[in-house]
Protein backbone atom coordinates (compact mmCIF):
# COMPACT_ATOMS: atom_id res chain seq x y z
CA UNK A 1 0.00 0.00 0.00
CA UNK A 2 1.46 3.39 -0.90
CA UNK A 3 1.69 6.21 1.59
CA UNK A 4 -0.86 8.17 -0.36
CA UNK A 5 -3.45 5.49 0.19
CA UNK A 6 -2.54 5.11 3.82
CA UNK A 7 -2.98 8.73 4.62
CA UNK A 8 -6.16 8.84 2.58
CA UNK A 9 -7.53 5.94 4.56
CA UNK A 10 -6.61 7.55 7.81
CA UNK A 11 -8.35 10.70 6.76
CA UNK A 12 -11.42 8.77 5.66
CA UNK A 13 -11.52 7.01 8.96
CA UNK A 14 -11.34 10.30 10.74
CA UNK A 15 -14.17 11.74 8.73
CA UNK A 16 -16.32 8.66 9.35
CA UNK A 17 -15.64 8.90 13.01
CA UNK A 18 -16.72 12.52 13.08
CA UNK A 19 -19.86 11.74 11.17
CA UNK A 20 -20.67 8.97 13.61
CA UNK A 21 -20.13 11.29 16.52
CA UNK A 22 -22.41 13.85 14.93
CA UNK A 23 -25.13 11.29 14.43
CA UNK A 24 -25.29 10.44 18.08
CA UNK A 25 -26.53 13.90 18.92
CA UNK A 26 -29.69 13.52 16.85
CA UNK A 27 -32.13 11.62 18.99
CA UNK A 28 -33.83 8.94 16.99
CA UNK A 29 -37.60 8.91 17.63
CA UNK A 30 -38.39 6.47 20.36
CA UNK A 31 -40.43 3.71 18.79
CA UNK A 32 -42.07 2.85 22.11
CA UNK A 33 -44.18 6.02 22.08
CA UNK A 34 -46.85 6.76 19.57
CA UNK A 35 -47.22 10.19 18.00
CA UNK A 36 -50.16 11.14 20.24
CA UNK A 37 -48.35 10.05 23.34
CA UNK A 38 -45.41 12.19 22.37
CA UNK A 39 -47.53 15.28 21.81
CA UNK A 40 -49.26 14.66 25.12
CA UNK A 41 -45.90 14.43 26.85
CA UNK A 42 -44.79 17.61 25.18
CA UNK A 43 -47.94 19.47 26.23
CA UNK A 44 -47.55 18.43 29.81
CA UNK A 45 -43.86 18.85 30.44
CA UNK A 46 -42.16 20.82 27.72
CA UNK A 47 -44.55 23.50 26.50
CA UNK A 48 -45.83 24.44 29.92
CA UNK A 49 -47.28 27.95 29.53
CA UNK A 50 -45.75 30.51 31.85
CA UNK A 51 -47.88 32.95 33.81
CA UNK A 52 -49.27 35.42 31.30
CA UNK A 53 -48.36 38.63 33.06
CA UNK A 54 -44.70 37.77 33.35
CA UNK A 55 -44.55 36.72 29.74
CA UNK A 56 -46.01 39.99 28.54
CA UNK A 57 -43.77 42.04 30.79
CA UNK A 58 -40.76 40.20 29.56
CA UNK A 59 -41.75 40.69 25.99
CA UNK A 60 -42.06 44.43 26.46
CA UNK A 61 -38.73 44.82 28.23
CA UNK A 62 -37.15 42.58 25.63
CA UNK A 63 -38.48 44.71 22.84
CA UNK A 64 -37.24 47.89 24.49
CA UNK A 65 -33.84 46.31 25.05
CA UNK A 66 -33.64 45.20 21.45
CA UNK A 67 -34.58 48.65 20.19
CA UNK A 68 -31.88 50.21 22.33
CA UNK A 69 -29.37 47.69 21.02
CA UNK A 70 -30.35 48.41 17.43
CA UNK A 71 -29.90 52.11 18.01
CA UNK A 72 -26.52 51.62 19.67
CA UNK A 73 -25.32 49.29 16.93
CA UNK A 74 -26.45 51.68 14.21
CA UNK A 75 -24.62 54.56 15.85
CA UNK A 76 -21.55 52.38 16.21
CA UNK A 77 -21.64 51.42 12.56
CA UNK A 78 -21.81 55.06 11.59
CA UNK A 79 -18.92 55.99 13.89
CA UNK A 80 -16.81 53.10 12.72
CA UNK A 81 -17.44 53.71 9.03
CA UNK A 82 -17.31 57.50 9.12
CA UNK A 83 -13.53 57.81 8.68
CA UNK A 84 -13.59 55.49 5.71
CA UNK A 85 -16.34 57.38 3.96
CA UNK A 86 -14.42 60.51 4.86
CA UNK A 87 -11.31 59.22 3.14
CA UNK A 88 -13.28 58.21 0.06
CA UNK A 89 -15.02 61.60 -0.16
CA UNK A 90 -11.79 63.50 0.32
CA UNK A 91 -10.09 61.45 -2.37
CA UNK A 92 -12.64 62.75 -4.90
CA UNK A 93 -12.19 66.37 -3.92
CA UNK A 94 -10.90 68.55 -6.73
CA UNK A 95 -11.10 72.11 -5.56
CA UNK A 96 -8.16 72.00 -3.15
CA UNK A 97 -5.43 69.64 -2.06
CA UNK A 98 -4.88 70.44 1.59
CA UNK A 99 -6.84 69.97 4.81
CA UNK A 100 -10.34 71.45 4.63
CA UNK A 101 -13.00 71.88 7.26
CA UNK A 102 -15.69 69.86 5.49
CA UNK A 103 -16.15 66.30 4.32
CA UNK A 104 -18.26 66.55 1.15
CA UNK A 105 -16.25 67.83 -1.79
CA UNK A 106 -17.52 70.89 -3.59
CA UNK A 107 -16.22 69.65 -6.88
CA UNK A 108 -16.03 65.90 -7.54
CA UNK A 109 -13.52 64.27 -9.84
CA UNK A 110 -10.71 61.79 -10.30
CA UNK A 111 -7.97 64.43 -10.22
CA UNK A 112 -6.28 63.01 -7.16
CA UNK A 113 -6.13 59.51 -8.61
CA UNK A 114 -4.68 60.81 -11.84
CA UNK A 115 -2.19 62.83 -9.86
CA UNK A 116 -1.22 59.84 -7.77
CA UNK A 117 0.04 58.08 -10.88
CA UNK A 118 1.38 60.99 -12.87
CA UNK A 119 2.94 63.32 -10.30
CA UNK A 120 6.69 62.67 -10.18
CA UNK A 121 6.80 63.35 -6.43
CA UNK A 122 4.37 60.66 -5.47
CA UNK A 123 5.89 57.53 -6.82
CA UNK A 124 2.80 55.51 -6.05
CA UNK A 125 3.17 52.80 -8.69
CA UNK A 126 6.66 52.01 -7.47
CA UNK A 127 5.54 51.96 -3.84
CA UNK A 128 2.66 49.70 -4.69
CA UNK A 129 4.92 47.35 -6.62
CA UNK A 130 7.43 47.26 -3.79
CA UNK A 131 4.76 46.42 -1.26
CA UNK A 132 3.15 43.81 -3.46
CA UNK A 133 6.48 42.07 -4.01
CA UNK A 134 7.24 42.22 -0.30
CA UNK A 135 3.83 40.84 0.56
CA UNK A 136 4.02 37.96 -1.88
CA UNK A 137 7.55 36.84 -1.05
CA UNK A 138 7.19 37.34 2.68
CA UNK A 139 3.90 35.52 2.92
CA UNK A 140 5.25 32.40 1.20
CA UNK A 141 8.57 32.13 3.01
CA UNK A 142 7.23 33.27 6.35
CA UNK A 143 4.50 30.65 6.21
CA UNK A 144 7.05 27.96 5.45
CA UNK A 145 9.26 29.08 8.33
CA UNK A 146 6.49 29.47 10.85
CA UNK A 147 4.92 26.14 10.04
CA UNK A 148 8.30 24.43 10.19
CA UNK A 149 9.14 25.85 13.61
CA UNK A 150 5.73 25.28 15.10
CA UNK A 151 5.48 21.75 13.76
CA UNK A 152 8.93 20.82 15.03
CA UNK A 153 8.18 22.27 18.46
CA UNK A 154 4.72 20.78 18.65
CA UNK A 155 5.44 17.23 17.55
CA UNK A 156 8.95 16.45 18.73
CA UNK A 157 10.44 16.28 22.18
CA UNK A 158 14.11 16.80 21.60
CA UNK A 159 17.00 17.98 23.68
CA UNK A 160 17.09 21.74 23.87
CA UNK A 161 13.42 22.20 22.94
CA UNK A 162 12.51 23.96 26.16
CA UNK A 163 15.68 26.02 25.93
CA UNK A 164 14.76 27.13 22.43
CA UNK A 165 11.23 28.07 23.42
CA UNK A 166 12.39 29.98 26.50
CA UNK A 167 14.98 31.74 24.39
CA UNK A 168 12.37 32.91 21.93
CA UNK A 169 10.06 33.97 24.75
CA UNK A 170 12.73 36.03 26.49
CA UNK A 171 14.08 37.67 23.35
CA UNK A 172 10.53 38.30 22.19
CA UNK A 173 10.08 40.57 25.21
CA UNK A 174 12.59 43.07 23.90
CA UNK A 175 10.99 45.82 21.83
CA UNK A 176 11.54 45.29 18.14
CA UNK A 177 12.65 48.85 17.42
CA UNK A 178 15.66 48.40 19.66
CA UNK A 179 17.65 46.85 16.86
CA UNK A 180 16.66 49.31 14.13
CA UNK A 181 20.01 51.03 13.95
CA UNK A 182 22.02 47.84 13.90
CA UNK A 183 19.84 46.25 11.22
CA UNK A 184 20.11 49.39 9.14
CA UNK A 185 23.90 49.41 9.35
CA UNK A 186 24.10 45.70 8.62
CA UNK A 187 21.82 45.89 5.62
CA UNK A 188 23.47 49.00 4.25
CA UNK A 189 26.75 47.06 4.27
CA UNK A 190 25.10 44.57 1.96
CA UNK A 191 23.54 47.36 -0.08
CA UNK A 192 20.03 46.37 0.97
CA UNK A 193 18.81 49.77 2.10
CA UNK A 194 17.73 52.96 0.32
CA UNK A 195 16.55 51.90 -3.15
CA UNK A 196 16.91 48.25 -2.24
CA UNK A 197 15.07 48.66 1.05
CA UNK A 198 12.26 46.27 0.07
CA UNK A 199 14.74 43.42 -0.21
CA UNK A 200 16.29 44.28 3.12
CA UNK A 201 12.85 44.40 4.67
CA UNK A 202 11.95 41.03 3.18
CA UNK A 203 15.11 39.62 4.73
CA UNK A 204 14.22 41.06 8.14
CA UNK A 205 10.63 39.85 8.02
CA UNK A 206 11.64 36.37 6.95
CA UNK A 207 14.51 36.01 9.36
CA UNK A 208 12.43 36.86 12.39
CA UNK A 209 9.30 35.01 11.27
CA UNK A 210 10.10 31.92 13.33
CA UNK A 211 9.42 33.92 16.49
CA UNK A 212 5.70 34.02 15.77
CA UNK A 213 5.18 30.30 15.98
CA UNK A 214 2.67 30.35 18.86
CA UNK A 215 -0.62 30.29 16.98
CA UNK A 216 0.38 27.60 14.53
CA UNK A 217 1.86 25.51 17.33
CA UNK A 218 -1.40 25.77 19.23
CA UNK A 219 -3.14 24.46 16.16
CA UNK A 220 -0.74 21.55 15.63
CA UNK A 221 -1.09 20.62 19.28
CA UNK A 222 -4.76 19.91 18.70
CA UNK A 223 -4.20 17.44 15.86
CA UNK A 224 -4.33 13.93 17.21
CA UNK A 225 -1.06 12.06 17.53
CA UNK A 226 -2.73 8.80 16.59
CA UNK A 227 -2.62 9.93 12.97
CA UNK A 228 1.17 10.15 13.08
CA UNK A 229 1.50 6.86 14.84
CA UNK A 230 -0.71 5.05 12.35
CA UNK A 231 1.31 6.43 9.47
CA UNK A 232 4.53 5.58 11.28
CA UNK A 233 3.42 1.96 11.60
CA UNK A 234 2.87 1.88 7.87
CA UNK A 235 6.44 3.04 7.35
CA UNK A 236 6.01 6.69 6.52
CA UNK A 237 8.97 8.95 7.22
CA UNK A 238 8.59 12.06 9.35
CA UNK A 239 8.71 14.23 6.27
CA UNK A 240 5.94 12.27 4.61
CA UNK A 241 3.85 12.57 7.74
CA UNK A 242 4.31 16.33 7.75
CA UNK A 243 3.60 16.92 4.08
CA UNK A 244 1.00 14.27 3.40
CA UNK A 245 -0.96 14.00 6.61
CA UNK A 246 -0.57 17.03 8.83
CA UNK A 247 -0.32 19.75 6.21
CA UNK A 248 -3.55 18.85 4.38
CA UNK A 249 -5.32 19.00 7.73
CA UNK A 250 -3.89 22.43 8.50
CA UNK A 251 -5.51 24.44 5.75
CA UNK A 252 -7.03 27.08 8.07
CA UNK A 253 -3.79 27.85 9.82
CA UNK A 254 -1.80 27.88 6.57
CA UNK A 255 -4.19 30.38 5.07
CA UNK A 256 -4.13 32.45 8.25
CA UNK A 257 -0.33 32.60 8.22
CA UNK A 258 -0.24 33.51 4.55
CA UNK A 259 -2.82 36.22 5.10
CA UNK A 260 -0.88 37.69 8.01
CA UNK A 261 2.40 37.56 6.10
CA UNK A 262 0.83 39.25 3.11
CA UNK A 263 -0.84 42.01 5.09
CA UNK A 264 2.10 42.95 7.31
CA UNK A 265 4.15 44.92 4.72
CA UNK A 266 1.13 47.05 3.78
CA UNK A 267 0.94 48.56 7.22
CA UNK A 268 4.59 48.70 8.23
CA UNK A 269 5.74 52.28 8.00
CA UNK A 270 8.36 52.36 10.78
CA UNK A 271 10.84 49.85 9.40
CA UNK A 272 10.09 50.88 5.84
CA UNK A 273 10.70 54.56 6.48
CA UNK A 274 13.86 53.85 8.40
CA UNK A 275 15.34 51.40 5.92
CA UNK A 276 14.52 53.52 2.89
CA UNK A 277 16.15 56.50 4.60
CA UNK A 278 14.50 59.26 2.52
CA UNK A 279 14.86 57.40 -0.74
CA UNK A 280 11.56 57.72 -2.52
CA UNK A 281 12.10 54.61 -4.62
CA UNK A 282 12.59 52.34 -1.64
CA UNK A 283 9.34 53.17 0.17
CA UNK A 284 6.44 50.84 0.57
CA UNK A 285 2.93 52.27 0.40
CA UNK A 286 2.78 52.94 4.12
CA UNK A 287 6.05 54.83 4.25
CA UNK A 288 5.32 56.65 1.02
CA UNK A 289 1.81 57.74 1.87
CA UNK A 290 2.87 58.77 5.33
CA UNK A 291 5.64 60.82 3.80
CA UNK A 292 2.98 62.72 1.82
CA UNK A 293 1.59 63.91 5.14
CA UNK A 294 4.79 65.39 6.52
CA UNK A 295 4.47 69.05 7.42
CA UNK A 296 6.03 70.38 4.24
CA UNK A 297 3.91 68.20 1.95
CA UNK A 298 0.52 67.95 3.62
CA UNK A 299 -0.99 71.05 2.02
CA UNK A 300 -0.25 69.84 -1.47
CA UNK A 301 -0.79 66.15 -1.06
CA UNK A 302 -3.49 65.55 1.56
CA UNK A 303 -6.15 64.51 -0.94
CA UNK A 304 -3.58 62.51 -2.86
CA UNK A 305 -2.88 60.62 0.35
CA UNK A 306 -6.58 59.87 0.65
CA UNK A 307 -6.71 58.57 -2.92
CA UNK A 308 -3.67 56.37 -2.26
CA UNK A 309 -5.25 55.15 0.96
CA UNK A 310 -8.39 54.12 -0.89
CA UNK A 311 -6.41 52.28 -3.54
CA UNK A 312 -4.45 50.40 -0.87
CA UNK A 313 -7.43 49.68 1.31
CA UNK A 314 -9.67 48.25 -1.41
CA UNK A 315 -7.62 45.17 -2.39
CA UNK A 316 -6.60 44.48 1.19
CA UNK A 317 -10.15 44.72 2.43
CA UNK A 318 -11.51 42.47 -0.31
CA UNK A 319 -8.85 39.87 0.39
CA UNK A 320 -9.48 40.11 4.09
CA UNK A 321 -13.23 39.77 3.78
CA UNK A 322 -12.84 36.73 1.54
CA UNK A 323 -10.55 35.01 4.03
CA UNK A 324 -12.23 36.42 7.12
CA UNK A 325 -13.24 32.98 8.38
CA UNK A 326 -9.62 31.86 8.60
CA UNK A 327 -8.56 35.07 10.26
CA UNK A 328 -11.19 34.65 12.94
CA UNK A 329 -10.15 31.04 13.50
CA UNK A 330 -6.51 32.00 13.85
CA UNK A 331 -7.08 34.98 16.10
CA UNK A 332 -9.53 33.32 18.44
CA UNK A 333 -7.44 30.15 18.61
CA UNK A 334 -4.43 32.22 19.53
CA UNK A 335 -6.36 34.23 22.09
CA UNK A 336 -7.73 31.24 23.91
CA UNK A 337 -4.45 29.43 24.09
CA UNK A 338 -2.37 32.52 24.67
Amino acid sequence: MTEQETSQQILDFDVDFNAAAANVEIDPPDPNFTQTEQTEFRKRFVDVPRPVSRLVGQRVTNRIANTVIYIVLSIMCIVWLLPFFGIVFESFRCESTGLEGYIFPKKWGFDNYVRLFTDPTSNFLRWFGNTLAMGLITSVVQTAFQLAVSYALSRNRFKGRKFLMNMMLVFGMFPGFLTLILLYTLLSDWNLTMTNAPWGLILIYIASSGMGYYIAKGFFDTISHSLDEAARVDGATQMQIFFKIILPLSKPIVIYTILMGFMAPWGDFVMATFMANNTNNGYNVAAGLQWLLTDSMINDYYTTFCAGGVLVAIPITILFMLLQKYYVAGVTGGAVKG
Partner: peptide, 19 residues
Protein backbone atom coordinates in the same frame (compact mmCIF):
# COMPACT_ATOMS: atom_id res chain seq x y z
CA UNK B 1 -19.06 46.11 9.30
CA UNK B 2 -16.94 46.03 12.42
CA UNK B 3 -14.57 43.39 11.06
CA UNK B 4 -14.08 45.38 7.88
CA UNK B 5 -12.34 48.09 9.87
CA UNK B 6 -9.64 45.60 10.88
CA UNK B 7 -8.71 45.02 7.28
CA UNK B 8 -7.87 48.61 6.45
CA UNK B 9 -4.22 49.30 7.26
CA UNK B 10 -3.91 51.25 10.47
CA UNK B 11 -1.68 53.93 9.08
CA UNK B 12 -4.43 55.04 6.72
CA UNK B 13 -7.28 55.15 9.20
CA UNK B 14 -5.23 56.52 12.10
CA UNK B 15 -3.55 59.22 10.05
CA UNK B 16 -6.95 60.26 8.75
CA UNK B 17 -8.42 60.33 12.25
CA UNK B 18 -5.44 62.32 13.44
CA UNK B 19 -6.09 64.95 10.80
Amino acid sequence: ILVMTIAIPQFISLLYVSN
